[in-house]
């Protein structure tokens, strides 16, 4: 138990610290790398909770795909981030005010003791006991039955995002020659190659001069 507690605090502290570094570090590439560190620790927290499926998916999706593309873009961008930072300072007061208001609201919510409204027990019912089924199976069971509608809806949203990316950025270039593999494969050697029987010493038709 003590080990678990220690691991939890280590992971939690590193997650938060990495999160701070994401916004604090000067170099955007380093920001992304700290973001990845935060993802890793969050995934460690999932493992600690016994949600190993979510832990792995977090790494595969966010670290393995999303953050790679972030890094990709950030490395190629030619933006002077110190200039952006100067602008950031300008807006700092407004941002701070908004943040403080949100914080105050949250404190208000928790301080008034409004939190301990009876959360109905029904919420917990859908979850089978962890040792009964693996949590991959449990997630699948609920995702493809009860939440199938939302799952499909979310799929549709992603489809629209993909259509959007293609519509808004894809340009059909006409000035490039494209490889047509089917044409290459379908090409008949008889049409492309002529074999000529050239006698030694005779004028070859392949000789240009």
């Amino acid at each position: 138990m003590i080990i678990e507690t220690i691991v939890f605090y280590v992971l939690a502290v590193v997650t938060v610290a990495a999160g701070v570094m994401v916004i604090a570090s000067r170099n955007p590439v380093q920001s992304v790398l700290f973001l990845i560190l935060a993802f890793f620790n969050a995934s460690g927290l999932f493992v600690l909770l016994g949600a190993e499926f979510l832990a792995m998916i977090l790494i595969i999706v966010y670290v393995g795909a999303v953050a790679v593309l972030f890094l990709f873009v950030v490395m190629m961008l030619d933006i002077n981030f110190s200039e952006l930072r100067a602008g950031f300072l300008q807006y700092l007061p407004i941002g701070a005010i908004v943040g403080i208001i949100l914080l105050a609201e949250l404190i208000l919510v928790f301080a008034t003791g409004a939190v301990d409204i009876h959360v109905p027990e029904v919420v917990a019912v859908a979850m089978p006991a962890p040792d009964e089924v693996s949590n991959t199976r449990a997630l699948g069971n609920i995702l493809y039955t009860r939440y199938a509608y939302l799952f499909q809806g979310a799929g549709f949203i992603l489809l629209v995002a993909m259509i959007g990316a293609i519509v808004l950025t894809h340009r059909q270039r006409v000035d490039v020659r494209r490889q047509k593999i089917a044409d290459q494969v379908a090409r008949d050697p008889k049409a492309a190659i002529t074999l000529k029987d050239v006698k030694p010493g005779e004028e070859g038709s392949w000789k240009s001069d």
Binding site: L33, E52, F53, M56, V63, G64, L71, S134
Partner: peptide
């Protein structure tokens, strides 16, 4: 002997790109 072994391996192999890109 974890029960998401295949995902673990997939995650590990998807991280390889970081070594190269960095």
């Amino acid at each position: 002997d974890i029960n998401v072994g295949i995902l673990y391996l997939f995650a590990v192999s998807s991280l390889g790109v970081y070594g190269i890109i960095i």
